[in-house]
Design a binder for these strands. Sequence first.
DNA 1: GTCAGAAGGTTTTTT
DNA 2: ACCTTCTGAC
Length: 741
Amino acid sequence: MGAGELLTGLNEAQQATVRHHGTPLLILAGAGSGKTRVITYKIAYLLQELGYHPREILAVTFTNKAAREMKERAVGLCPEASEVMIRTFHSFGAWLLRRFAEDAGLSRSFTIYDDDDMVSLLRGIYPEEQRSALRRVARRISRAKDLCLDPEDDLSPIGFDPRFGAMYGAYTRRLNEIGNVDFGDLILRPISLLGARGGSGGPLSVGGLIRSRFRAVLVDEYQDSNRAQYQLLKTLVGPDTYICVVGDDDQSIYRFRGAEVGNILSFPDSFPGAEIHRLEQNYRSTAPILAVADAVVARNTGRLGKTLFTTRTDGPLPRLVLLPDHEAEAEFCRTLLAREPSAAAETAILYRTNAQSRVFETTFARAGIAYRIVGSLRFYDREEIKDAIAYLKLFANPADEVAFRRIINKPSRGLGAVSVDRIFSALEDGAAEHGYDLIAATEAAASGLSRKASAAARGFVQAYRELGAGLAGGLLNEFVAQVFERFGLVAYHVEQDEDTGLGKRENLEEFLSAASMYPATPEGLVELLENLELDSGREQEASSDARNAVTLITMHNTKGLEFDRVIITGLEDGLFPRSDDDQEELEEERRLFYVAVTRARNEVYFTSCRSRMVNGRTLELYPSRFLQEIPEDLVDIDEQQVQRKRTRFGDARQGSGRMAYRTAGHDAHQGSRHAAEAEAEAEARFPAFSAVYHDEYGSGMVAKVWWSGSHEMVLVRFETGRELQFVAEYSGLERISSDSF
DNA sequence: GTCAGAAGGTTTTTT
DNA sequence: ACCTTCTGAC
């Protein structure tokens, strides 16, 4: 494929960007402007036209999904791209640390601690502290690492807790003794590794070696990089490295994780001579959708600023639906999906918090609507999987205190808190002799334990040693199966599952089959663990018919995805935006709104509830301030609603201007319960005891009618015996003559 | 050492 | 509503 051929199908701006070479390049790519396309073409262009060897190119993303997709698409353009290193920042860091383990002061078989593991480790050091307090400390340690701060540095940017420095220090020492790393270390340790002189890079330092290998470095979603990642990038880029970053300051949504929009804003200062290219043509959404997204994000200050345009000028206005509560919201979505089942696969329901997914799950499960949840409970987060991983981690690293504490008495084998304490004393005593080895410590402590505990400890050590000898070839699933069997893990969880409910056995089986992709060697084991730790394969098919399933997803998780139709739920102050008293935070929520809206190709719905159950309490809520920030002519308010309001409250839009549905929302949301109650009853279209018919559920009788806000709610008892609750307007119910009943 | 039940706090978003 | 932690009986 010649250059001309490679670049056909790209617009002029995209072509210029793909061709650019030499100076540092910042690509400001608006939503839907073909960002991934440009990067993948750029990789192909470097390989085909500029003669780069695949090993000389490094492309960094923020999610594994993005990395996989980029790889796939690049290989589609140019097969050589399969050898290009395309990884997340964290996985690149892990690769580097294993590759140069000795220089980094690590064993090649270190494993990676996630946020929960950090808390558990702290718990081992500070058993008397509250778990919630330790969680806060863990979060702060992560923030410190995002900012490249060591325990002895000035930690005031993190907050004012006088004990924090000491706790961070103790945590760091313990983690070093164990020989594992946390997520932050995957960025921090490479910075010092690459910055250091000498080492096993031969005549070159490790940094020199890496800088001479990667002649081109590409970074995706640069607006989400934090200070540590920026530093890592700096150490990767030498005078001859071609550096190109892509991002959109309006889509920076990971501030809470340390992301600094400042990185993208100041790129030209950090990398002198940088050029800026803009990609502003949106190929995804219709103009009405972009108008709404822009209206809100335009209120942010400190933007680089850009104007998206599209040739898709036609399309329905985004639609706002006001609802009484979260159940009605789920019911509204159900009805929408039932009306056109084939569109479900291209529909996504977006929410701000994972907890919001629950109503949708139960509603859809009841209605037999297939759904797919992205995120929420990750495979790796399940109890039984964490247990399985903990056993395996202990084989990778016998010093892994967190893994050890988790499984030493699970299933319970009579080694309780007292015995575990003794084992840890033995660990301290024997550290000089055996190093940090919990198996050796358990063996050493066994004689000093009660009779039952002593036998259990010896049995555990023996099982560990015999099983460990099995890491000598074959496939890893055989080894894992033996571990499960010998330690009684499957039996334990199957028994637990009897009252808890679902699929632990299946999950463990799935785990086994994942393990079959690796060799039964120490290296294979470490590789499996790393893949689980860094890429938890976070997608679960929650109901059988996955092909036509609707997607349930947090707004954060949608980044990089697109759908024909997007329903953005929970547009209520306090939920989205979560709070508006911190300006920075409010601006981040606006960017999240922008991300959410721009996922849609053709249709956008907003739903806003008057009340919602949060943490077991029902809260009264106001419509999101974002709804006020949209000029009224850019959104359709549910027509039936407006009708209703006009008749009941006069013209809801009077004297409102921009505030139209703020007013409307308040009327609809608040006005009706007292004065309007009687009137509302009078205009009920499904009086109690009337006969009704529903396409899916057949005929039935209205058992109960009530008003929730301005909404008529009905409880219908169907002939099948089923009782279901509906918002009358969205129910799809028809009244039928009562003699059929 | 284990278990069941009660009390009490609490989550925004994720590599 | 959920999960963790605490308490007391076996």
